[in-house]
Computed example of a mutant assay.
Amino acid sequence: MPVTLHDAFVPTAQQILAGMAKLVDKAEGYASDSGFDDAELIEAKLAENMWTLPWHVRACWVHSGYAINLYKTGGFTPDFTDIPDSWVAMRAMIADAQSQLDAITPEELEAVAGETVGFILGGKRLMEMTGQNFLLSFNQPNFFFHATTFYDILRMKGMPLGKMDFMGPLRVIGS
Rank of each mutant, 00 (worst) to 15 (best):
M1P: 10
P2Q: 09
V3A: 15
L5D: 02
H6P: 08
H6M: 15
A8V: 04
A8D: 07
P11R: 14
P11M: 13
P11C: 13
T12A: 14
T12F: 14
Q15L: 13
Q15K: 14
L17T: 04
L17C: 06
L17Y: 01
G19R: 01
M20R: 00
M20F: 02
M20T: 01
K22N: 11
V24C: 01
V24L: 02
D25A: 15
K26S: 05
A27F: 00
E28M: 04
A31W: 04
S34R: 10
G35S: 07
D37R: 00
D37T: 02
D38A: 08
D38K: 01
A39Q: 08
A39W: 00
E40G: 05
L41E: 00
L41C: 00
I42A: 08
E43N: 11
E43C: 03
A44K: 00
K45P: 03
L46W: 02
A47E: 13
N49Y: 11
N49K: 14
W51M: 12
P54I: 02
P54W: 01
P54Q: 03
W55I: 09
W55R: 10
W55C: 07
H56N: 08
A59C: 13
W61Y: 13
W61L: 09
H63R: 06
H63L: 08
H63D: 04
S64V: 04
G65M: 11
A67N: 00
I68D: 08
K72G: 09
T73L: 12
T73M: 10
T73K: 15
T73D: 14
G74M: 14
P78D: 00
D82F: 12
D82I: 09
P84V: 06
P84R: 10
P84G: 08
D85M: 14
D85R: 15
S86N: 06
W87N: 12
V88S: 10
M90L: 06
R91W: 02
R91T: 10
M93T: 12
A95T: 11
A97C: 09
A97Y: 07
Q98C: 12
S99H: 15
L101W: 05
D102A: 15
I104F: 03
T105N: 11
P106W: 04
P106S: 03
E108T: 13
L109G: 10
V112W: 05
V112R: 02
V112D: 09
G114N: 11
G114C: 06
G114Q: 09
G118I: 14
I120V: 15
I120T: 12
L121G: 11
G122Y: 05
K124Q: 15
M127S: 14
M129F: 13
T130S: 11
T130H: 03
N133T: 11
F134N: 01
L136I: 13
L136H: 13
F138C: 01
Q140G: 12
Q140D: 10
P141H: 04
N142P: 02
F143Q: 06
F143K: 07
F145G: 03
H146D: 08
H146V: 01
A147R: 04
T148Q: 05
F150H: 10
F150E: 01
F150Y: 12
F150W: 08
Y151Q: 03
D152V: 01
I153L: 00
I153T: 00
L154D: 05
R155I: 01
M156D: 03
M156F: 06
G158N: 05
M159L: 09
L161Q: 04
M164W: 07
D165Y: 11
F166R: 06
F166G: 07
G168R: 09
G168K: 12
P169C: 05
L170D: 10
R171F: 08
I173S: 07
